[in-house]
Amino acid sequence: MERAEASSINRYFYAVVLYFFLWIILTYPFSIQEWEAGAAIAFIAALLSYRELSVSGLKNIKRIGILLFWYLPVFIRELIKANLHVAGIVLNPKMPIKPGFVKIKTNLKSPVARVWLANSITLTPGTLSVDIEDQYIYIHWITVGSTDVEHASEEIAGSFEKILEVMFK
């Protein structure tokens, strides 16, 4: 379990903000009565669960900004590239695959950042993260490029690692 970075009150208010925002989205046709009920429920639900929700509290809101304006465009480009790659393989009658399991090294420290990196790797061209062990992520690669740990890390994780390093600083 990671040690908490922020104070309890900070984490509590982050939970309140997040739950209230979710409530607004899920009860979409806006009305003021819904919002009052939502605020009351958000305060109570946050009291019950703020310890499990986050370790760094309101700092996460800044991270969501980076997520939307920097991470998301890169991610969508990679997702579309990945799907064209899959389409090329599946629609080709001969199915040109050369699979293998490789291992990459990451410099990210926080567990949450590693989860984000593994998720991003799964949705980028030809790679699927299978297991994670300290600094190493094991990856199934559908067309193996290089088996060397350093080269593979640069080729697979390079673009996302920079963004995530800034995001989870």
Partner: peptide, 28 residues
């Protein structure tokens, strides 16, 4: 792309390749 994902799951030779096609194509 949902169709392509299902076709990949149906055609590809082993579990991990199927998982790749299934995840990426059906997610998009």
């Amino acid at each position: 792309f949902l169709f392509l994902g299902a076709l990949g799951v149906f055609r590809l030779p082993d579990l991990f390749n199927r998982l790749q096609a299934g995840t990426k194509a059906t997610t998009l």
